[in-house]
Design a protein around this nucleic acid. Structure first.
Length: 575
DNA sequence: GCCGTTTTCGGCCCGACTGTTTTCAGTCG
């Protein structure tokens, strides 16, 4: 079957870009393919469907040539140009370009002049000191090739990314410790951690006190620290995370913070746009062609203001249309943690949680929530944490009794019901009818075919007693790929049946991801942001779901659990 | 290959670092 998912189309264009680069194409042509791949990967609608409708060139960065290549891909499974180029360049050549210090230009010379077509061939040539015979290559290069290959070759396996919660556990403490060293210092997280991405490569920290760079090594969290230049230091935490620190004068803080927050794609697009208006942005300031005057900015608000733009929230800075929206004055008002009125997914000791109903209810009260659904696992969950129908009946009574006692919060008797492989649920309809709230999720048989998994999810959405689908794709960040499944088809079923979808806030899941969450909103599907807490403190995971929603451009109007209970109740499905 | 307040051709972000070179191309973030 030809590749039709956005991810598959994007992968094919990335590969073609790499091949063209090896072929010596002008870099801007290569970048056009990479840009198109990113646009397609981030698109909230099916690009295959757009292509069939003849509308794919509506996407920024897709013109007639790319349209034809995408059409070939989804109709025949191949892009002719890619087939041709693959025959000319061995796969091992692309592996070589992944090594540090080796890009396409140098890899191509190694291939043309020494016949090197794989990392193995490269290592042999380096040990035989044959690389230094090429002009521009020397002994140092041979050494670095050998040590890179000895270190495990492909850097993908070496540079494991860290999931955001682990990175922030260190990063937020680090900020606090640095601020303690100097009460007046501005110290901020930058990079992907500040954009609240799913995972990070390292931590970037910006400060306005150069002298603090000398003292990073004193901090308890830090294993080693060293100065890398006058305004920079690099440290390693005991948890193994690399921290890049940069210091700058207060009047330039905004310039550097904006630069290091990125993303690279956002900055590149912003700078290209600025150049057309005669302005050159760098980490050091904004240079005006007309006056040859360079201005610096203490805050990002002033920097964006100099460009004539409103402030753009870090979560939006991924070059997914935020610059165009800023120019048009059409940036979304993003949802905030304080907008949330209730949490609709948590566990207690009845299944695999660590706290009682009363403890979870109190914790929700403490966070100012107006309602909380208790949703333990269901009858077939296993791991000794299953809840039999009789146990569920007792749990319902327990929740109702606790609801009577606690004032100020409405407790909902719910369940996180397993969706069995055939799409049925593991409680009968009568028992489900006694519940106030049902969220349906997959916890078994992850490897069904895409068609079977899609049918399974649609069946659950069509069930009259199911209010919401939980963690729809099953992915675990940096650990487990999503199930193969037609998300668009499931979202269409949810829209049709008034079934809500969850953004599961567990930092390991964040499922729906930001692309699917944006697609859900575009399809008119109501979204709930839930913690999936297994303890009172677990309720605080909600911020990760909020960040995913913000990265999906969502405002409070698209998040159903920003509504007070009566309005929420009116908005959801009724059997 | 894309795109337009330099609009159908001629541009396409910015700066630091590296290793190899006598002034810079390639790579990286």
């Amino acid at each position: 079957m030809p590749p039709t998912s956005n991810g598959q189309i994007a992968d094919a264009l990335d590969e073609l870009g790499d091949l063209y680069e090896l072929d010596g194409a002008v870099i801007h042509r290569v970048l056009a393919y990479r840009n198109a791949a990113k646009v397609i990967r981030d698109a909230p609608v099916s690009v295959a469907a757009l292509t069939r409708e003849g509308r794919v060139t509506e996407l920024a960065g897709i013109g007639a040539t790319l349209e034809q290549k995408i059409r070939d891909l989804i109709e025949t499974g191949e892009i002719p140009a890619a087939v041709k180029l693959r025959a000319r360049f061995p796969a091992g050549l692309l592996a070589i370009t992944a090594l540090p210090g080796l890009g396409p230009k140098r890899a191509r010379r190694l291939f043309d002049e020494l016949g090197i077509d794989s990392p193995q061939a490269l290592e042999e040539a380096a040990r035989a000191q044959r690389l230094r015979t090429l002009r521009g290559f020397g002994a140092k290069f041979e050494e670095s090739v050998i040590s890179a290959l000895e270190a495990g070759g492909a850097p993908d396996h070496v540079s494991q990314r860290t999931v955001l919660d682990r990175a922030l556990a260190v990063g937020e403490d680090l900020l606090a410790a640095l601020r303690e060293l100097d009460g007046g210092a501005r110290v901020e997280l930058a990079g992907s951690a500040r954009r609240r991405a799913e995972s990070v490569k390292d931590l970037d920290i910006v400060l306005d006190r150069p002298e603090l760079l000398e003292r990073v090594g004193e901090l308890e969290l830090i294993e080693t620290a060293s100065r890398t230049s006058a305004g920079a230091a690099r440290a390693r935490t005991h948890s193994g995370l690399t921290v890049e620190l940069r210091a700058v004068a207060p009047e330039q803080f905004g310039d550097l913070l904006q630069h290091l927050t990125g993303s690279a794609a956002h900055n590149a697009a912003l700078r290209e746009w600025a150049v057309r208006r005669g302005l050159h942005i760098s980490e050091y300031g904004v240079l005006d062609d007309a006056t040859q005057q360079s201005d610096t900015f203490a805050t990002e608000e002033e920097l964006y203001g100099r460009l004539g733009l409103p402030y753009i929230e870090p979560e939006l800075r991924e070059n997914r249309g935020e610059i165009e929206a800023a120019i048009a004055g059409a940036l979304p008002a993003l949802v905030e943690l304080g907008d949330i009125r209730g949490d609709l997914h948590c566990h207690t000791t009845a299944s695999d949680g660590h706290a009682t109903v009363a403890e979870m209810a109190q914790a929700a009260c403490d966070r100012g929530y107006e309602y909380l659904a208790i949703t333990d696992h269901s009858a077939s969950h296993g791991f000794g944490n299953d809840v039999s129908p009789d146990q569920l009946r007792r749990q319902i009574e327990l929740v109702r009794a606790a609801d009577e006692q606690l004032k100020g919060i409405r407790l909902l008797a719910g369940s996180e019901v397993n969706i069995l492989p055939d799409g049925s649920l593991d409680y009968d309809d009568e028992l489900l009818g006694e519940l106030d709230w049902v969220i349906a999720s997959v916890h078994t048989a992850f490897s069904l075919s895409s068609d079977a998994m899609t049918a399974r999810m649609i069946a659950a959405a069509e069930h009259p007693r199911v209010h919401a689908l939980g963690h729809l794709t099953g992915r675990m960040i940096e650990r487990r790929r999503p199930y193969s499944l037609d998300v668009d088809a499931v979202l269409a079923a949810c829209a049709r049946t008034a079934t809500l979808v969850e953004i599961n806030s567990s930092p390991k899941r964040r499922d729906l991801n930001e692309v699917h969450a944006r697609a859900a909103a575009a399809a008119g599907v109501g979204i709930v942001i839930n913690s999936d807490a297994h303890s009172p403190g677990g309720l605080d995971a909600l911020r990760y779901g909020i960040w995913t929603a913000r990265r999906a451009w969502l405002g409070p109007g698209e998040i159903v659990n920003t509504l007070p209970w009566r309005k929420f109740d009116a908005r959801r499905k009724h059997a």
